[in-house]
C-alpha cells in the first residue's frame, strides 16, 4: 500500500477534512468519557479513542448514498458518516432530542438519512444486515455500496462467516471492514484466532482480503476506495482488516489487566493516528500548527455546544414509552 501523500488522490482540503473529522471524534469521545465519569450517561459506553483513522478513512471512500452498519463502538463511525453531534450527544444522555429519542442510547445510534443503518449491541450482527442492504441495492439497481464495520471479535461469530459467503455467492456490493483493535473485550486476537491475519479468511469465501495499517487514514481511505470501486462496478465484496488499537478499556470499569501499560504507551506514542497524520500534513506544508490549533478550537466550541444542547434538552415524556414499537 502506498503511503506517500504525493501519490494520493486526495486534495489538501479533503485531507484536512479527514484530520478534522478524526479530531472531532476524539474530542467527542473525551467529552463522553467526562460526562460518564460525572454520572450523566446511563449504562455504559464504548470509546473509540485511538481508532479514529479507521472510521474516517473508510467513510472517506463512501458517497452520501452509500450505507454503513456499525458496532457497539460506533460513535466514530456515526460522525465519520456525517452524523450531527448534537443529537448524538443528546442520545447518550437519554434525551428526547437524541437520534433515538432517548430510547436507544450509545449502542443504537442510527440515521438512515445519511446511510447509517445503525450501531449494534450484538457482535457481528451488522454483517448480515449490511449484506441485506447490499442485496436491496443490487436488486433495485440503486448503485449504493454498503460498508460493514466490525471488530476482530466479530470475526469468530457465525454471522461473519455466513454473511461473507452469502455476499460472495450473490456478488453483492458490500465491503466488510474489520477494525482489528487487538482485543475482543479482554480476549487478545492472537489467542482467539489461529491464523496470522483475519483477512486470510477472505480466501475461504472466494473474495479478496487485505490487511492494512488502520492507524494511517490515507492508507485506510485508499484501500477502502479500491474495495468500494470493486463493489460498485459489480465485482463483489472485499474483506479489509485494519489493524488499530483501542486506547481505553472495553467499556466502563475495565482495569485492562489483559495487556501491559507499555504496550498501550507504544501505540499511543508511536502510532497515534491523529498526531502522525498532523505531522505529515505539516511536513508537506498542507497544514500549519496555527491552523491545527484553530481547528481544535472550533471543535471545542462545537463539542461544548453539543454538550449544552444535550444537557438542556428535555427528558423523553413517559407517554412515549410505548410509542414506535409497531408502525
Amino acid at each position: 500500500m502506498v503511503n506517500n501523500l504525493e501519490e494520493t488522490i486526495y486534495s489538501n482540503q479533503q485531507m484536512k477534512k479527514m484530520l478534522t473529522d478524526m479530531m472531532l471524534i476524539r474530542s467527542f469521545e473525551e467529552a463522553v468519557e467526562k460526562l460518564f465519569q460525572e454520572g450523566k450517561i446511563p449504562g455504559t459506553m464504548h470509546l473509540c479513542i485511538g481508532q479514529e483513522a479507521t472510521a474516517v478513512g473508510a467513510c472517506a471512500a463512501l458517497t452520501d448514498e452509500d450505507k454503513i452498519t456499525s458496532t457497539h463502538r460506533g460513535h466514530g463511525h456515526s460522525i465519520a458518516k456525517g452524523a450531527e453531534i448534537k443529537p448524538m450527544m443528546a442520545e447518550l444522555l437519554g434525551k428526547a432530542t437524541g437520534y433515538g429519542k432517548g430510547k436507544g442510547g450509545s449502542m443504537h445510534i442510527a440515521d438512515l438519512t445519511i446511510g447509517n443503518l445503525g450501531a449494534n449491541g450484538i457482535v457481528a450482527a451488522g454483517l448480515p444486515i449490511g449484506t441485506g442492504a447490499a442485496l436491496a441495492s443490487q436488486m433495485k439497481k440503486k448503485g449504493y455500496v454498503v460498508l460493514c464495520f466490525f471488530g476482530d471479535g466479530a470475526a469468530n461469530e457465525g454471522a461473519f462467516h455466513e454473511a461473507l459467503n452469502l455476499a460472495s455467492i450473490w456478488n453483492l456490493p458490500v465491503v466488510f471492514f474489520c477494525e482489528n483493535n487487538q482485543y475482543g473485550m479482554s480476549g487478545p486476537v492472537k489467542e482467539m484466532v489461529n491464523i496470522e491475519h483475519i483477512s486470510d479468511r477472505a480466501k475461504s469465501y472466494g473474495i479478496p482480503g487485505f490487511t492494512i495499517n488502520g492507524n494511517d487514514v490515507i492508507e485506510v481511505a485508499k484501500a477502502t476506495q479500491e474495495a468500494v470501486d470493486r463493489a460498485r462496478s459489480g465485482e463483489g465484496p472485499t474483506l479489509i482488516e485494519a489493524e488499530t488499537y483501542r486506547w481505553r478499556g472495553h467499556s466502563r470499569s475495565d482495569a485492562r489487566k489483559y495487556r501491559t501499560r507499555e504496550e498501550e504507551k507504544d501505540w499511543r506514542n508511536t502510532k497515534d493516528p491523529i498526531s502522525k497524520f498532523k505531522e505529515r500534513l505539516i511536513e508537506e506544508s498542507i497544514l500549519t500548527e496555527k491552523e491545527f490549533l484553530e481547528i481544535q478550537k472550533t471543535i471545542d466550541t462545537e463539542i461544548h455546544e453539543a454538550v449544552s444542547f444535550a444537557e438542556e434538552s428535555p427528558e423523553p415524556s413517559l407517554d412515549t414509552l410505548e410509542v414506535d414499537i409497531y408502525v
Partner: peptide, 13 residues
Amino acid sequence: SAISGCAVGAAMM
C-alpha cells in the same frame, strides 16, 4: 443467521 439478517437489511432499505 445470514439469510435472516439479510432479510432485515433488505427490509430496512
